[in-house]
Design a protein around this nucleic acid. Structure first.
Lengths: 158, 158
DNA sequence: GATGAAATAGCATTTGC
DNA sequence: GCAAATGCTATTTCATC
């Protein structure tokens, strides 16, 4: 499941998680490797799937979404069919910007953004219609810690 | 608070949220703008703060963290001092990869990764020691929807 | 099996419009 | 915002460890 990473891979991944908006040359200088080797490693990390994407992270508030909420819910029915209906709804609602099945007190955790309360209510209603029950909404007030790099460590050499 | 975005900005942000691993030239071709204009706009979007960072998103499982959990909690005390102690702890614990103050049934929502159950327990203990109460852990089972682009719309022209 | 150095092709970035 | 020009970078190649 997990990919084998040496110290240089870890260094590269840390740098890229922090800031991927740098040239390969700059990255090479930081790591202390030639540009060619750096490029090869980064390519390998992308192909291996450890790096899922390189993407821009926006500030939701600045981008016009003052409301950001965590929504947890259970499903009214737990058959595969009902789950799939719900999943499709989640995928189709653009204000749902992330969603996971979880184990615990509830079944799903969602991250939702909205421009105003009416828009939020509309999304919650949609989710109810698609099988969500006991919707609990937590309004995001303030960021304590922004999405941060994973605390990577290199694999033992064997 | 929110930044003014025209249709081209929205297009650019959508592309960059989806995949920021493309040359400026490629981006320019997609948008139908000259490379110079594209570069200027992207620079502006970065400086404005709408784009917070360009970064690599890793697969936590592949990167060696099979356990990913949502943890919600209340604080034992709600004085500013207690909150700051807790915030500092959260910032200092590397397995906490995101955290927010929220309004609702609980006070904070955390996203935590761990290599195994022992590591997870250690983090939860730390949080308790720093003032977290009623810790509720939700084990992430399966992704329904990966972190997705914000459903941006351009600002009215006035 | 991966690295480094050198070479080429391509891109980022600037300038003037 | 565009087009052209310059300088730098990505990327390949190939010898090497």
């Amino acid at each position: 499941m997990a990919v084998r990473l040496d110290e240089i891979d870890v260094q590269l991944l840390n740098e890229l998680q922090q800031d991927a908006d740098r040239s390969n040359l700059e990255l090479a200088r930081i790591i202390g490797l030639s540009p060619a080797a750096t490029l090869n490693r980064v390519r390998r990390l992308k192909k291996s799937g450890v790096i899922r994407t390189i993407s821009a992270r926006l500030d939701p508030g600045q981008a016009g979404f003052p409301l950001q909420v965590y929504v947890s819910a259970t499903l009214t029915r737990h058959e595969p069919r009902a789950s799939r209906v719900f999943e499709q709804a989640v995928l189709a609602i653009p204000q749902v910007i992330a969603a996971d099945w979880v184990a615990g007190e509830i079944d799903v955790m969602l991250l939702i953004v909205a421009r105003d309360v009416a828009e939020l209510q509309h999304v919650l209603t949609q989710l109810s219609l698609k099988g969500a029950q006991r919707l609990t909404t937590l309004l995001r007030l303030q960021e304590i810690k922004p999405t941060s790099p994973l605390p990577l460590t290199s694999s033992p050499e064997n």
